[in-house]
């Protein structure tokens, strides 16, 4: 981030606790998604145990923590991408607008239509830039002028000016940062409510990272964003709320990801309540 006055407004932490008691959204912001006691299993292995947190509308929620703490696993549970992994299952409830997205009659395709995802490694289709953005519009039969919708999405992803003269060239020919913005354009082209980002900047240089972060801040005016990041500075820079996960060994010597603390980002980074959070943030652990 360049301009510090672009920082999200500081939210008052209304004493929201990760154990689920006294759950009260900060400053009245509506929770678009809610996770209640969510555990994710791969076969018999419980990768994440009992995470409870809200995802508030038009906010950026960051998930941080050391490798193997299950933050990406939780993220992928939010739009049922874990369904694609053999043996993966989710217990607890994840609701979107009050509806359980793992209910029997819910179509995962419809969930992913509402809850889009940007991946760690930029993964544009080996098609033209135009086709990349038009793809989601086509498969979802969204009505309207295709050229306009493609331009709107590319503009929204702050990529239009760089690619408007070469829409017919391959998306693979763009730089890494441009590719990731193309992937964001592709996602916002179908106008999801939530955008999940799985370490979207980990393959990018600092300048490209800065652009994506600026973009995220712009996007959260219209969308709700959940970002998983290894980069604590990034979480501190862009997010409104932060969830800190860690990996813990239980009584049977099995490692599980656990949600340690959730709260307003400023508070998490300046005044963490849990010593483990403090240890990680200050660099003593992780």
């Amino acid at each position: 981030m360049t301009a510090t006055n672009d920082r999200p407004a500081v939210h008052i932490d209304a004493g929201w606790r990760h154990d689920g008691a006294e759950r009260q959204p900060a400053d009245g912001g509506a929770a678009l998604m809610e996770l209640r006691d969510v555990s994710v299993f791969y076969g018999d292995y419980e990768a994440v145990r009992g995470a409870t947190l809200p995802v508030r509308q038009n906010e950026i929620t960051a998930m941080i923590g050391p490798s193997g703490c299950g933050k990406s696993t939780i993220l992928r549970a939010l739009n049922r991408m874990n369904d694609l992994i053999r043996g993966a299952r989710v217990t607890g409830t994840i609701t979107y607008l009050g509806q359980d997205i793992y209910a029997r009659d819910v179509d995962p395709i419809q969930v992913r239509r509402q809850i889009g995802m940007v991946f760690q490694k930029p993964n544009p289709f080996p098609k033209s830039i135009y086709e990349n953005v038009a793809y989601g519009i086509k498969i979802n039969n969204i009505k309207g002028n295709m050229d306009d919708m493609v331009e709107e999405a590319l503009t929204g992803a702050a990529l239009w000016d760089e690619v408007k003269d070469k829409l017919k060239t391959s998306g693979m020919a763009l730089s890494g940062g441009q590719q990731q913005r193309l992937c964001i354009a592709r996602t916002i082209a179908i106008k999801p409510a939530v955008i999940l980002m799985d370490e979207p900047c980990s393959a990018l240089d600092p300048i490209a990272t800065g652009r994506i972060e600026d973009l995220m801040y712009e996007l959260c005016k219209q969308y709700t964003i959940v970002i998983v990041t290894h980069n604590m500075q990034q979480a501190a820079r862009v997010s409104h709320h932060t969830a800190f996960f860690t990996a813990e060994v239980d009584e049977k010597q099995v490692r599980h990801g656990r949600l340690v603390e959730f709260g307003e980002t400023g508070r998490i980074f300046t005044n963490p309540k849990d010593p483990r959070t403090e240890g990680y943030i200050t660099g003593r652990f992780g």
Binding site: N79, M81, L84, I109, Q110, R112, R113, G116, M117, F119, K121, N123, P124, F125, P126, K127, Y135, G136, I139, N140, C183, R186, T187, I190
Partner: peptide
């Protein structure tokens, strides 16, 4: 990653195969 990208955009599996994987 290409399959996942397509599925994450709300494409069904057969659609992903026909429009992304096969090409």
């Amino acid at each position: 990653e290409l399959r996942q990208a397509s599925l994450a955009l709300g494409a069904r599996k057969w659609r992903t195969i026909v429009t992304v994987v096969l090409p």
